[in-house]
Write a protein that binds this DNA or RNA. Structure first.
Lengths: 136, 136
DNA sequence: AACACGCTCATACTAAAGTACCAAAAGCAT
DNA sequence: ATGCTTTTGGTACTTTAGTATGAGCGTGTT
């Protein structure tokens, strides 16, 4: 929001500069005024597109920030969240166990806890729920 | 793309209209010219944001179009693709069977075919691969 | 120190998932 | 009609997944 204010401030200044130019050097020529109008139009068109992309990027980042908060809200431990991510990568319990240097039993325990906390019946459902909660 | 051309045509016309207005009714007054400049700036700022959103939506739809092409490329039949989507929704074979009014045996056959065609070992991996291919 | 909590691991099951192979009915194109 | 693919269904079996329960270990809290 602060950036937006700064950007608008810059825009106002540049607009004023254009006013000055039009007043003191180009006012007598009608064609030049049309040119200035065109320039202003194009510039602000580009600025509009730029601002829109910025805001969209902020939204995307915003989704990323929500992650950890919701993970805490679900009371998922670090390890459980870690296992959940590996599940979403399509790994089996054995593969996850090897990747995290623990036994398959341990992974099964973690998976069961994840399923309970996400209120899922299967690991595939856990993936779906986690993506709905934008945790992945 | 055709829409973009139409929109730009409309913009050019409105710009010309502003020129006419400025020429025949407001040219003598400096303050009014500034006002017109401001209006043009704001209008094109809004137009820029609007166009950007449009283009982003088109990209989103574009990804959607690629879907069917890649599904065909993978030689996935309609039914197999249908099953694949239900898998990604976190449903079990039995639940998919009930939803599509067939037996679990049939779903198992479809699932096996999907796994072979997606080169996946598990249904969770199939989900991951399908999302990478932007098929879901 | 005592306690809660997270991580680890195990055993013993039950339940899904997945494989292999086969086969019949339906839809489609030549 | 004859072939080809899809869809459907079955049997039999192996492999993962998931549940239930218990237990040891380390860490931070009270």
């Amino acid at each position: 929001m602060k950036r937006t204010i700064l950007i608008f401030g810059g825009l106002a200044l540049s607009l004023l500069l254009l006013f000055q130019i039009s007043k003191y050097s180009l006012l007598s020529n009608d064609l030049e005024i049309e040119g200035i109008l065109a320039i202003v139009a194009v510039v602000f068109l580009i600025v509009g597109i730029y601002l829109n992309k910025k805001s969209l990027h902020k939204e995307a980042l915003g989704e990323g920030e929500i992650d950890l908060k919701k993970v805490e809200a679900l009371e998922l431990s670090k390890r459980e969240y870690e296992v959940l991510m590996q599940i979403s990568m399509g790994l089996s319990n054995k593969e996850i166990a090897d990747k995290l240097f623990v036994t398959e039993s341990t992974i099964k325990t973690h998976v069961s806890n994840v399923l309970i906390k996400l209120k899922a019946k299967r690991r595939t459902q856990a993936i779906q729920i986690a993506k709905e909660l934008k945790i992945l």
